[in-house]
Nucleic acid binder design. Structure first.
Length: 326
DNA sequence: GTACCTAAGCTAT
DNA sequence: AATAGCTTAGGTA
């Protein structure tokens, strides 16, 4: 942006500001909470308003395979919004690279999650009251200190809650959790799994948004038990959806109990041109869900934030966080 | 066609 | 909720 401006022009009151100046002049509000590592900016009100009137096009049902029940919004968010939203969320959200140990064939292996993650939300048995305290959903009384001892639950910040409310209106589903993944390059991935945890209840509905680089989303049916009636029955076919910026997939019904999905590693020109953000909304029914999601998507490690100069995720020091620096 | 290369897919741990 | 190592697929000269 040019900073050149004559003194005359500076002192001459302008009748009307340009649209761009109006946006930059807007007072930026923040979502704050004791559990946040730093305040999280709200979206400019113009973008926030536009999210409320989505999707851009109706979704398409994909249910031509056994146990598969998807609605594919291609796109959900129009292209003139996706770039701003992607850049905004990548810059504003606190991310983590969670590490943990697993047992693999008798050997202990250390895992460094191959993507950046973050999470906000609280299961159905509790809610945040007006001043941010966690209260029991039924009684309204502040919960026992030991109930969410390991990780203080974090309310969904307004910038993500705008999208949550949009998704609820579009799908007629209810969501209380928001998981965010950042795949920095084709080397970042998630292996085949289902979102079939008990704490989501049976047949959970999950809304999954894509922003940024296009990445392949693979789906395959869980292994089918041999069928005495028809031993040669063909296996359900595998799907490959090239998810693009602004797309949304609603997975529902028997999908999670019967299908696996993944974002495989990609190399070379198939790696995806830059980073990709995935945002999923879901509804955890019990306390275990809150514990599990914070454990695997926040953990106990440091915060990473997007460095606009280096154009990469950087460790964010405690000092910077206190001072509200990026 | 065939050798050679890279990427993608599969499987045991 | 993952990875290494092997096999297979696919492109190109």
């Amino acid at each position: 942006m040019s900073t050149k401006r004559t003194l005359d022009a500076f002192f001459t009151p302008t009748a009307k500001k340009s649209r761009k100046e109006d946006e930059s002049a807007e007072i930026i509000r923040h979502s704050t909470h004791a559990s946040y590592p730093m305040a999280i900016s709200e979206l400019p009100s113009s973008i926030s308003k536009e999210l409320s009137s989505l999707p851009a096009r109706p979704g398409r049902e994909i249910n031509d395979q056994p146990d598969l029940d998807l609605i594919y919004y291609e796109p959900y968010i129009p292209s003139y919004l996706t770039n701003k939203l992607f850049e905004f969320l990548r810059s504003e959200l606190p991310f983590h690279r969670v590490e943990y140990d697993i047992n693999r064939g008798g050997y202990k292996t250390h895992i460094r999650t191959p993507r950046y993650t973050t999470v906000f939300g609280l299961d159905e048995t509790a809610r945040f009251d007006e001043d941010g305290s966690v209260v029991d959903a039924k009684s309204g009384f502040k919960v026992d200190d030991k109930r969410y001892e390991r990780y203080p639950p974090r309310p969904i910040p307004k910038c993500l809650d705008d999208l949550r409310r949009s998704a609820e209106a579009a799908t007629d589903c209810r969501f209380n959790f928001c998981l965010v993944n950042y795949y920095a390059s084709g080397a970042d991935s998630i292996s085949f799994h289902s979102d079939d945890e008990r704490f989501l209840g049976p047949d959970p509905a999950i809304a999954s948004f894509s922003l940024g680089a296009r990445r392949d989303f693979l789906m395959k049916h869980k292994p089918v038990a041999p069928d005495d009636q028809n031993p040669d029955r063909p296996q359900p076919k595998q799907l490959k959806l090239p998810l693009a910026s602004g797309d949304m997939i609603l997975m529902r019904g028997r999908t999670q109990s019967n299908w696996l999905h993944s974002i495989p590693k990609r190399t070379g020109k198939n790696a995806g041109d830059g980073g990709r953000i995935n945002i999923t909304f879901r509804r955890a029914m019990v306390k275990d869900g809150t514990e599990n999601y914070y454990n695997y998507n926040v953990g106990t490690g440091p915060v990473y934030r997007w460095d606009k100069t280096m154009r990469e995720m950087r460790l964010s020091s405690a000092k910077d966080q206190l001072e509200g620096k990026p």
